[in-house]
Structure formats: structure tokens, C-alpha cells
Design a protein around this nucleic acid. Structure first.
Lengths: 184, 184
DNA sequence: TAGAGCATGTAATAGGTTACATGATTAG
DNA sequence: CTAATCATGTAACCTATTACATGCTCTA
């Protein structure tokens, strides 16, 4: 049996403070877009289960002109389960990298078309890197005071390292493809 | 509607030459473990459908003492569909990186435990890098003569760049965590 | 006045893994 | 004698996305 990490992705965010499903979705979209994502179709049912299992409590915050917010807060039991997962060894993850997969079959299409694909990849990662730098800047000089900050910094560092590697590789791959093009 | 890339992952391998489902699985396990994977539960039904849709043909190779091999060969129609997918722009991929997710909630556990998790991650990526270098060595000096080789080289380059970045980041993260530990 | 943001939620569907069944051979 | 390798395949299950429903407010 394989178990869902989404459960812990939700519980983890709740460890930052009480939040709604909408907030959790936004958090993943805006801050961690590089290495994690969640959809409403997962978040809401999980939040419901978490409350049933007493890992979180639910309260309703009324708003005028806007729908009510269902605020979930992590319980002690929730903390315990989260911590247990956090120290567990992590299984090796196999990302499915579509651009790379396509490149494996690059021989089937023209060099030009391969160049185009890698350029698209490079542009996307350049944008991603910029976003990370901006996010990092926000945190650093708006003097955010949060005990989680040191760990967010580590995550930013990851994003920077990996995206720079992506971009550097893309540049090298483009150069190699251009050489191949000339030699035709 | 979201469509499966597995279909093309299978068709793509078939573009290298006629192969069985077993071969395809092995190919992904042994050569591309870093960025793609497929399970039998996906491969066999897809192969069946590919034959039904005339994107591949099936023939049976009898063997003594071993089960028959069902060999699939890509057709012209299969090639066409593969090529069409290969030039299509690729949607941004969001890997789900469990180690990073855990790190986001690192504040919940001890620094020591965080260090342990990152060490595990580092060791795994060091092993991965070694494997890639070995694989690359095999191809390069056993003078493999295959028109796909230039593209496999690009993929190896990717593995090298990205894994080096992983390792470097892990080292930095470990240093930062050790500093945090002293300052307690 | 169209669309985006706020906010919750579900149903339909697609995507993917795991475990199992079968059975011979070979290596340790 | 046990485990792995060879080889195909299916059923049960879990995981995840997409589309839809609802409805108010604010902005371009």
C-alpha cells in the first residue's frame, strides 16, 4: 500500500498556523510552485478527514460579502503524526521530466525542433529562478520574523541551485545541438 | 482532459527498435531511472492498445525454457504520432520532491533530524551521479554506434548537472544546519 | 459587462502502483 | 533450497486532476 503525501503536505502547512483550504492551495501555488502542488480536489476532502481523525479542529469565520472561511487548526495529535512522518526516511523520488523524455527521442525530429524545445525549457526555468529570487528578497528585507524562516531559506537555496543547473545544462545542450546542425 | 505521457514513453522506446514490454521496463529502470519510470501495469495494456490502433505491430518470438517474447515494432503511423508529440510544447512540470517538502516543516523536528534527512538525500544523489558516470563511460568507450547517441549524451549531461547541483545544495544546507545547531 | 478573486465542495474520470497468478531455468 | 531472472498479464486499489456548481464583490 502506498500512502499519500498530500495528507502531510496539508498537515504541514497547518503547522504554520490555522488556515483554510483556500489558503493552503494559495500557499503551494505562490511559494513552492517549484517542487510541490496540490489541487482542491485533494485538499478539501483531506481537511475533512483530518478533522474527523482529530488531527485538526475546524472553526468557521464569517465574512460579509464573501463566503465563510473554514479555518483548520492542527491539534497535538496532528503535530505528533506530522513529526513522525518528518523523521521517516524518504523514498527515492522519480520525477517525470517530460522535456528530458522528449529529448531521448530527439533523433526522430529535426535539430531545429529540438533546439526550440530546449529553449522553451530554458525560458521557463529562467522565469522560475527570477521568481525565487524575488520571493527570497521579500522575505529577507521585509524582516519576516517566523521560526520557519531558516528552513524556507534552505528551500530557496535549493530552488536557486537546481534552476541554475537547469539553465546551465540547457545552454550547453543548445550549443551541442547547434554544432550538430552545422555538421549536417 | 489530461493525457498520458506513458503512451509516448512506450512509443518512443519502440522508435529505437522492436522490443517487448519487459525490455521497455528494463530500459527505464536501467538507463533513465533519474527522470522517468514505468510499471508493467501501464506498459502491457498500452502495448496492446498501440497494436489495436495500428501504431505498432506485434509478433511472437518463441524461446525454449523461457516464456515467449511479444515483440512490438513501431509502424509509420506510430512514428507520425510520436513526432507530433515530440514537437508539441511541453507543459511545465511540477515534481513532487518529498525531501524538500519535509524540509519546509523542518522547524517541527530537531536540527539533528533535519541533518539526517539531508544526508540521506545527499548519499542517494551521490550514488545516482556515480551511476550516470558509469553509464556514460560505457557508451563512450565501447564505441556504441547508434544515431540516438547524441541525444543520450544530452540526457547524461542533464543528470550530471542536476545531481551535482543537488549535492552542492545538500552540502550548503548541512553547513547552515550545523551553524544553527551551534547557536542553540 | 466580462472576468478575476474570494471560498467551499463534489463527481467524474484519468493516471498509476502493487500484488498476484503462472511456470521454467539458473545462480548462489 | 532459495532467490533471482525471464516473461506476460490482470484486478484491485490508491492518487490526483478537471470540470462543475454556487454566488457575491471588485476592477478594467
Amino acid at each position: 500500500m502506498k500512502k499519500s503525501k498530500t495528507r502531510f503536505a496539508v498537515l504541514g502547512i497547518l503547522s504554520y498556523g490555522p488556515m483554510s483550504g483556500y489558503d493552503i492551495k494559495k500557499f503551494y501555488e505562490q511559494n513552492v510552485a517549484g517542487f510541490w502542488s496540490e489541487s482542491y480536489g485533494q485538499i478539501y476532502p483531506i481537511l475533512k478527514r483530518l478533522a474527523e481523525e482529530k488531527l485538526a479542529t475546524r472553526s468557521i469565520q464569517k465574512q460579509e460579502g464573501k463566503p465563510d472561511r473554514h479555518i483548520y487548526a492542527i491539534t497535538q495529535k496532528g503535530h505528533d503524526e506530522l513529526r513522525q512522518w518528518l523523521v521517516e526516511p524518504t523514498g527515492r523520488h522519480i520525477g517525470r521530466h517530460e522535456t528530458l523524455l522528449k529529448l531521448m527521442f530527439g533523433q526522430q525530429i529535426s535539430i531545429e525542433d529540438n533546439i526550440l524545445q530546449i529553449k522553451r525549457f530554458r525560458e521557463r526555468q529562467i522565469a522560475e529562478l527570477k521568481k525565487i529570487e524575488a520571493l527570497k528578497g521579500n522575505f529577507e528585507h521585509q524582516e519576516v520574523d517566523d521560526p520557519n524562516l531558516p528552513y524556507w531559506r534552505l528551500a530557496f537555496g535549493y530552488g536557486e541551485h537546481v534552476n541554475r543547473a537547469y539553465i546551465k545544462w540547457a545552454e550547453e545542450a543548445l550549443a551541442a545541438l547547434r554544432k550538430m546542425e552545422i555538421m549536417t
